[in-house]
């Protein structure tokens, strides 16, 4: 499944319009940072098997997130590094090496229309992104800018530009940090202790939610009167299992919110796949915010630097 996503649609959750947006907020912003794009520029989120994309015009692109072994005209291209691609070249993804989803960003972005202030695809509303749906075979997307790079690229299929960054952070042991939720106290004491054990990500996991399978967690109470939830909310189902709400989550829910993953760790989860195992560790709000600020500062600084590099590139054409 491949969709256009930005950093999410906000301001309409009171009307039941869920925010959507990129699953891995870090990698999607990284793709933009490395091109010096505005961090809110929409990107293409892709899953394996990923599409074949024919570039009819030259462009500078950047791929981040999962490593799907991208090739242009059969030759490997790097990820987490901008690449200048020539006209009439074919981008393919050969196999899934690591991660779950990758992001493709184009210098200056794609020609798209906003819906309710955002470019993100909302599949339930069939709105936003590209005609409100998944990308499909035969779609023609257009660049915001036309590029003229012939002096630079000559007859090459592509040229990798000279700067790069580290990709998303894989965490050994997949220990994810969370803030205790409003219904944390509903958990029985011995159940609270079980969160540091391993939970399996099941195959019923998608952009809406990750369903986990682990030891049964026991709650003192069951249903909650419906209340708002957020990306990363850990809900406890009546059967004792947990789900973690992801980018396409509903705006409200009626299951106890035992915790919320910290924003800085959501990208790690977004790059895990069914069969992977995770565990949880509670942290305080201060830690969560410090980590988030660090990530944001890093990406902002990178974006500024890369914008300058791109301007230099143009100056030397």
């Amino acid at each position: 499944m491949d969709t256009i996503q930005d950093q999410g649609r906000y301001g309409f959750q009171h009307l039941g319009v869920n925010p959507s947006g990129a699953m891995d907020i870090f990698s999607s912003r990284l793709a933009n940072s490395l091109l010096g794009n505005d961090l809110l520029t929409p990107v293409i989120e892709m899953h394996f098997p990923a599409p074949e994309i024919l570039f009819e015009q030259p462009a500078i692109i950047c791929i981040t997130g999962a490593d799907l072994s991208p090739v242009i005209n059969q030759k490997s291209i790097p990820i987490n590094q901008p690449v200048l691609v020539n006209r009439n070249t074919l981008l393919k993804f050969e196999r899934l090496r690591s991660g779950a989803r990758c992001y493709l960003s184009i210098l200056h972005g794609l020609k798209l229309e906003k819906w309710l202030d955002s470019y993100s695809t909302n599949l339930k509303a069939q709105a936003g992104g590209w005609q409100g749906r998944k990308l499909q075979k035969g779609d023609n997307l257009f660049f915001n800018n036309e590029f003229e790079f012939s002096s630079l690229i000559g007859n090459n299929d592509f040229i990798s530009l000279k700067w790069s960054a580290n990709g998303f952070d894989e965490r050994p042991g997949n220990e994810l940090r969370f803030i205790k939720g409003n219904e944390w106290d509903w958990l029985k004491d011995d159940s609270a202790d079980l969160l540091c054990e391993k939970f399996l990500i099941t195959k019923d996991s998608d952009r809406m939610a990750y369903r986990l399978n682990g030891k049964d967690l026991k709650a003192k109470k069951g249903q909650l009167i419906s209340s708002a939830v957020t990306f990363g909310t850990m809900q406890l189902l009546p059967n004792g299992q947990m789900i973690i709400l992801m980018a396409d989550h509903q705006t409200t829910g009626g299951y106890p919110r035992i915790g919320h993953l910290i924003s800085a760790d959501l990208p790690i989860l977004a790059q895990l796949v069914p069969g992977d195992k995770i565990s949880f560790r509670p942290v305080d709000l201060g830690t969560a915010e410090t980590e988030m600020i660090e990530q944001a500062n890093y990406l902002q600084h990178l974006q500024t630097t890369c914008k300058f590099k791109i301007e230099n590139l143009y100056a030397n054409l």
């Binding site: 959750q13 009171h14 009167i225 419906s226 915010e289 988030m292 600020i293």
Partner: peptide, 27 residues
């Protein structure tokens, strides 16, 4: 960013990065 009323609760979604890291208070 969002204000979401429900039956008997209300959630305010905010951007934690708007706040400058001063005074040692959390967002």
């Amino acid at each position: 960013r969002d204000i979401v009323p429900a039956y008997c609760s209300l959630v305010i979604h905010y951007d934690p990065l708007i706040k400058k890291v001063t005074n040692n208070i959390t967002a």
